[in-house]
């Protein structure tokens, strides 16, 4: 594929990104561009390499070859914590919460990062109380205010995912990477999370891996379809869903 000149407002870009596992190319020569302010969805059949791409972008895997640029800066060799400090925050396929802490403490741990107190083991944790108001506001925005003192591990699955979004938003990320945000959810929770993602996208960019095509249709400004680690098609939902290759490879005849 020809490398086009990236649009000026490209927040995240990969150039010829590849990842091999013992000779098996999970991702090969991927050139992906995510435009600032978009909700960009990454879809594809099982084994297409979506999660691998995701883990490469979030530095949980090291690419075999290729580069990753965030705002034009090469971040290929950085650690997960480094890119988090640049404002790239990921979610996980299984819910990423701190189960033994309360929802309030979950959000507060994220807020705490900006306070520069995190290494201070000689200070009382009462100084964290000043973050409570902001933490409560964030919990309120995802509908968890009245559960702020519960045990997180005992919350329903959809609520854990909502809490995860609140925690991520606490870091005021520039780019949110969501790994299957509605996976394993009932219809009601799916609607709630879809609305939350939409709400969270204001003023930031979101790249998400998502199986639920209804969610993708509702949310995504742009869609990249992966197959066998490479891009099969790209465009808006309308464009992609009309692509004969995509219909054959991924959506099959079931997609009307």
């Amino acid at each position: 594929m020809l490398i086009e000149t990236p649009p000026a407002d490209c927040i995240l870009e990969t150039r010829r990104l590849s990842k091999e596992f013992k000779g098996f190319a999970a991702v090969s020569d991927l050139n992906l561009q995510v435009q600032r302010g978009h909700i960009h969805a990454l879809i594809g059949p099982n084994g297409a390499g979506k999660t691998t791409v995701f883990n490469l972008l979030t530095k949980f895997l090291i690419p075999t070859t290729g580069t990753i640029l965030f705002n034009g800066v090469d971040i290929t060799r950085e650690e997960p914590a480094d890119i988090a400090l640049r404002g790239v925050i990921r979610s996980f396929q299984i819910s990423a919460v701190f189960p033994g802490l309360t929802p309030l403490e979950n959000v507060r741990v994220a807020l705490q990062r900006a306070t520069n107190t995190s290494y201070q083991f000689w200070k009382s944790d009462r100084c964290l109380k000043q973050l409570d108001d902001r933490a409560m506001a964030l919990l309120d925005s995802v509908g968890l205010a009245e559960l702020s003192g519960a045990i997180t591990g005992e919350l329903a699955y959809g609520r854990k995912r909502a809490l995860e979004i609140a925690t991520t938003l606490a870091l005021e990320p520039k780019l949110m990477l969501l790994d299957e945000p509605t996976q394993g959810m009932g219809a009601e929770d799916v609607d709630r999370i879809t609305a939350l993602v939409k709400q969270a996208s204001a003023g930031r960019t979101i790249l998400m891996v998502e199986h639920n095509l209804k969610v993708v249709e509702t949310l995504a400004d742009r869609i990249t379809v992966l197959q066998r680690g490479a891009i099969l098609a790209e465009g808006t939902y309308a464009e992609v869903s009309q692509d004969p290759q995509v219909m054959e490879a991924y959506m099959g005849s079931s997609h009307a």
């Binding site: 914590a81 400090l85 701190f98």
Partner: peptide, 9 residues
């Protein structure tokens, strides 16, 4: 992993 992804070393 979550602590790491929140930016903690």
């Amino acid at each position: 992993p979550r602590a790491r992804s929140l930016g903690y070393k």
